[in-house]
């Protein structure tokens, strides 16, 4: 452990993260007109982004072993069923998580 290195890593990671989060506003900030194609992107991106995040949060699934994807697949199934049943997002999130935790801790994989 080295305090200077710890600080520099924090500085680099933080500055780049902030830069990426600010970039769209820097380019298309206050007073500048938003081009039509960008207005369109602003409307469709939330949908595409949730699709991308869906893949992102499941990106480390592995089909090499049963434990690498079955618990996640079953828990996603539970979330979908809970949604179809009650359409309550909090119930889906909590129900899916409790099911998953029980599955990975109680079942011998």
């Amino acid at each position: 452990m080295n305090n200077m290195h710890t600080f520099l890593i924090l500085a680099v990671l933080s500055i780049i993260t902030i830069f990426l989060r600010e970039l769209p506003y820097l380019v298309f900030g206050r007073g500048k007109t938003i081009p039509k194609w960008l207005e369109y992107l602003g409307k469709v991106l939330p949908f595409a982004c949730m699709g991308m995040l869906l893949v992102y949060c499941l990106k480390d699934l592995s089909f090499a072993s049963v434990s690498g994807f079955v618990p996640e697949a079953l828990a996603c199934g539970v979330i979908l069923l809970l949604y179809l049943w009650k359409k309550n997002s909090l119930l889906c999130i909590i129900g899916g998580t409790v099911f998953y935790v029980a599955l990975v801790n109680l079942v011998k994989w």
Partner: peptide, 22 residues
């Protein structure tokens, strides 16, 4: 350590996706 609790964020994304789709 309680294994698997971090699945809550996956559950959040999956649920948000389903809800948005619906």
């Amino acid at each position: 350590e309680l294994k698997g609790v971090d699945f809550v964020l996956t559950a959040l994304f999956v649920t948000s996706f389903i809800e948005q789709w619906d």
